[in-house]
Design a protein around this nucleic acid. Structure first.
Lengths: 238, 238
DNA sequence: GCGGTTAGAATTGTCAACAATATGAAGCGG
DNA sequence: CCGCTTCATATTGTTGACAATTCTAACCGC
């Protein structure tokens, strides 16, 4: 199946920084939004034409995204949107869980009064969405909560890596696999995390957030199991 | 101070895969081996000349290394070898510790008999080096031990990220800061890790290896403190 | 002598053309 | 009808050249 018309979305002429950075951001968006589906090959010339730039910056951008794990390069064949196998997604969940533990631990140690208040406010938003069974709203505030928590860790490298892993995982499943049923459970886990942060319990917060991520991993497995997929690889889950 | 003669180390003509990959590996080596010192600017044209390639592949390689955190790009000024501040090194140690915990936990769960034997053998090598006060040998087997442990985790993404963080940290201090004095302490921590893995104690192994990394972080701080540097940022250590 | 200004050189950013390789279809023999 | 070969096409890999920007240093007025 092929689109007949290729939309041209040129990159603004006047800008700051590298052209390849703007290109990278565009392609990253396309990949994460699912405009280009997993496994699909990326045509340099066509992409360059759509963005109204040359192939040089495009190749640099693709190389960067390859290192980020969003694309894979096959010599003389080109760049492909990475197709994440279940096995790899599980591996990434484990990494994510480890990073989350560190983040929560640091957040509990370093949270300022203002940051704590923001976390509590976001928790309340989730609470409301949870009560109203509004999955979309819950996901939105959930993302904000996790982002704020990361910010609270005051560790830029940790934030960047978590974001990177999160992006890669998004390759596997377009959006979160949280059905209305698991909202309460997820929110209960958030409560434990927040409570630990509030009382400055670093280890508790770390363990709680790590458990929350691993719970999400299990949710994904259950979801796939209910669809009959990926049962083979389930043994990889600790 | 400038080198008068620039050694030409051309890249072999016949090879598999991308030319830019070979270039990237070369530059990565140069940076990690300290051939190009931190903060130094990288001249694309000269580098391309030394490697007997054009600037295109060089730029792609540099872009990849930028994403890996080894270089920083300043628009219209070029690429610089990243100068790691103490603060950032401490952040990276925290990330590394979190990844190490996950790795050890998984290793304890998944270690095969053969892998366990290899870990024990490497531990014995370290033991010998420790008794003989041979720092260089200890560092060598120490690296091998940690690498084998990572391998045992059976999580490729975790291994790659740990390696990446390790490389970045190497930017800060050329080699490990382990003096003969701390060999015994480090080895004692190894013993705890190995013992936990041997008895399949996942949480114990995770906690032990994390503690080991954080102990290394503290070692670095002590080392710097004894040289009068970086006392200002010491408050960042949890 | 010193600060600001301004050409010139050096370097990065971008592009378009050329070479090498893979893809796919047509033709051929079995 | 199926598999193999061959050739045309499309796409990636690489290069050198040109444009834009920054750095250097000589120059000028004070």
């Amino acid at each position: 199946m092929k689109r007949i018309v290729e939309h041209v979305i040129a990159i603004p002429g006047a800008r700051h920084g590298h052209l390849s950075d703007a290109v990278r951001e565009r392609i990253e968006q396309m990949v994460l939004r699912g405009d280009i589906e997993a496994g699909e090959r990326i045509n340099e010339l066509r992409l360059a034409g759509r963005l109204k730039v040359s192939r040089g910056p495009v190749r640099e951008a693709l190389r960067s995204l390859e290192r980020a794990g969003l694309l894979v390069a096959i010599p003389n064949r080109g760049m492909f949107v990475r197709r994440l196998e279940l096995e790899e997604a599980l591996h990434l969940y484990d990494v994510r869980a480890g990073l989350a533990r560190v983040a929560a631990r640091l957040a509990a140690l370093r949270a300022s009064a203002k940051q704590l208040k923001r976390l509590q406010a976001l928790f309340q938003r989730m609470q409301q969405a949870c009560a109203a069974r509004e999955v979309a709203a819950f996901n939105h505030w959930n993302s904000a909560f996790h982002a704020e928590l990361m910010e609270t860790s005051c560790n830029p490298r940790l934030i960047a890596m978590s974001e990177s892993v999160r992006n890669e995982l998004q390759l596997y499943l377009g959006k979160g696999v949280v059905g209305p049923a698991q909202l309460r459970k997820s929110q209960a886990e958030h409560r434990v995390v927040l409570a630990a942060i509030e009382r400055g319990d670093a280890e508790g917060a770390g363990a709680a957030l790590e458990a929350h991520v691993l719970s999400g991993k299990q949710r994904m497995l259950d979801y796939l199991g209910s669809r009959g997929e990926g049962i083979r690889a389930a043994r990889l889950a600790p």
